Amino acid sequence: MDRPRVITHNSAAVDGRLELSPGTPIMFDERWPSSGQDGYADIMRRHRPRVLLEGSGSFVGAGQEPSPLPPADQPAGALLEDFVPDEIVARATKGWMTVPDSRGRVRWTYKEYPDEAWAGWHLLVLVAAGTPLDYLAYLRREGVPYLVVGEERVDLGGALAALRARFGVETVVATGGGRLGGALLRAGLVDEIEVEVLPMAVGGTTATALFTAPDLDRSARPAGLRLLGVEERPEGRVLLRYEVQR
Rank of each mutant, 00 (worst) to 15 (best):
L52I: 06
S102W: 03
G182A: 06
E19G: 07
S56P: 04
T98I: 02
L139A: 14
V60Y: 01
R179G: 02
Q64Y: 04
D29T: 09
G95N: 06
D38C: 11
D215Y: 01
L160E: 01
G224V: 09
L123I: 12
L239N: 03
E232F: 01
W108T: 04
V127G: 09
P70T: 11
A220L: 15
P85V: 02
P71I: 07
L136R: 00
Y138T: 04
P199E: 11
V6C: 02
M27D: 00
A129C: 09
E142V: 03
G204D: 08
G150F: 07
A137T: 10
E170S: 13
V169G: 06
V144S: 04
L18Q: 09
F83Q: 00
A12T: 07
E87S: 14
G120E: 09
D29I: 12
E231Y: 08
L210D: 05
A117Q: 09
R246G: 15
D86M: 04
R140Q: 11
A201T: 15
V169D: 04
G188W: 03
F211K: 10
E19C: 05
G77A: 15
P25E: 14
G39T: 11
T171A: 08
L52K: 08
V149C: 10
F167D: 04
A137W: 11
S67R: 13
V84G: 02
Q37T: 14
E235L: 15
D115A: 15
L126Q: 00
E81W: 03
S58L: 13
R107E: 03
A72S: 13
A209R: 14
R46P: 07
D155A: 08
A165I: 02
G63Y: 15
P145R: 05
E142N: 07
V148R: 05
L189M: 05
K94D: 12
T212H: 11
I88A: 11
V172L: 13
E151M: 12
Q74G: 02
E87Q: 14
D155T: 02
L163G: 09
L225T: 14
V172M: 12
A117G: 14
L124T: 00
P71G: 02
L69H: 04
R164F: 06
D115H: 14
L147G: 01
L126H: 03
V169I: 13
A223M: 04
R164V: 03
E194P: 01
V149L: 01
L185Y: 06
T175Q: 09
S219W: 12
L53A: 05
